[in-house]
Design a protein around this nucleic acid. Structure first.
Lengths: 222, 222
DNA sequence: GGAATCAAAATTATCTATAATTTGAAAAGG
DNA sequence: CCTTTTCAAATTATAGATAATTTTGATTCC
């Protein structure tokens, strides 16, 4: 204990910046200035530039050749795009994971659902939701597929936070329970069907907050 | 004319290395040494490291924290994984692209198919095949989805080249023609169904070449 | 003869410095 | 008063240099 080895500085910066972008601390369009970030992380800008390439590949940042890097912006069309990609890929993953799902895994997923229902804020709900999806999909054992899904989850979470950053209402996740029930009874295709619709359910934010521009306020909720 | 602006050195290096990996010039597991590559491209190693991050995100290279970067290796399981991901995502793209397909686009796609049938070697065939898929999918207008599909195509091409690097037999692509026919008649779902199976068709390489290890020799052919 | 050890060489990861480009604002001109 | 031009400050992109880690290869020991 004491000091975490933290494999490489670039990866640490990339993770931290990704978190900030997803949480909305860094607004869409905001410039990411390498020298400032380098100073904050007590490094030079070389690792920072490497982190930028990672964020670019994740779709969280956009780099214009000699003009710097900005936080990627998004619109309703992209929210839908991400939702549909998730639907397609998560269904694929679940189809392969189904045969490897154990009662223990399904119990853990049920527990994650309970935690989501009891979540006090968006942040906690998102964490529980992501854990649910990870739990039932990871057993597919397809690393490339899982990595893609993770990136899409990050994008989803970004949209989610941007819509619900102020208000948040508790609710019970019936879809998750229906999916688990179907999986427990070995009805894989039915579970896939529910998952496919569940991920594409797009919610409308309660109301436009006092943020000046009446930005589109939609978000994936699955 | 004269000198290409070539946006950034890092992107040029990344493209060139990706090409070499896909073509099989750089074997799986081969080490990518930043100083050597920097010297070859007449630059320092900073842009080289940025290019590495890009290749890593594409799944073409693997970086181990203080041990350098290697060309990613792959096995039959990953070939299948990539094929299934392509099937899922290309079908999604085609579903959205269908309404925007014009006769002109379909004619161009038919021309690409003809060129593929007439191709003298794997390389030419792969180029024509990729053009076909791009032509009918691009009109979906979903940039994130198209970028993912492009990366998967690169992986597919890598497997393809690795299997057919020596022998290559001409053949007629009936699937492409059936897809175009269905699209021309407005039967989108049927076109999607054919595309889904087409992309997942996995061929067996003619014979293991004299390459020492009897590596698995399979490849996607679609 | 083969495994373990240790030092030299190669290589990675990072930092500091330099060149080139862009941005933004002030000044000049219509 | 608005547009265009000019110039300085800020920022990006790359180069060169340094520290630290891993490989490699020869040598010794069993």
């Amino acid at each position: 204990m004491g000091k975490e080895p933290e494999d490489t500085i670039a990866s640490r910066i990339s993770r931290e910046l990704a978190d900030r972008i997803v949480r909305g601390e860094l607004a869409p369009g905001a410039r990411l200035r390498q020298d400032h970030i380098a100073e904050e992380f007590q490094t030079s800008h070389v690792p920072v530039r490497e982190a930028f390439r990672r964020l670019e590949a994740q779709g969280l940042a956009i780099s214009e050749p000699r003009r710097g890097v900005r936080v990627a912006s998004f619109d309703l069309a992209e929210v839908r795009e991400v939702a549909e990609m998730r639907a397609a890929l998560e269904v694929l993953a679940l189809r392969h994971a189904a045969r490897h799902l154990t009662p223990a895994i399904l119990d853990a997923a049920e527990e994650a659902t309970r935690e989501g229902d009891a979540a006090a804020d968006v942040r906690a709900w998102e964490e529980a939701n992501r854990r649910f999806h990870r739990l039932i999909l990871t057993p597919c054992g397809m690393s490339r597929l899982l990595a893609s899904i993770d990136d899409l989850h990050a994008a989803s979470a970004r949209f989610l936070f941007s819509a619900w950053q102020s208000g948040w209402e508790k609710r019970t996740d019936h879809d998750h329970r229906a999916i688990l029930l179907a999986l427990r009874q070995g009805r894989t295709e039915e579970a896939c069907g529910i998952l496919e619709k569940h991920v594409q359910w797009i919610g409308r934010a309660p109301q436009g907050v006092k943020s000046g521009a009446p930005r589109e306020a939609f978000a994936i909720v699955g």
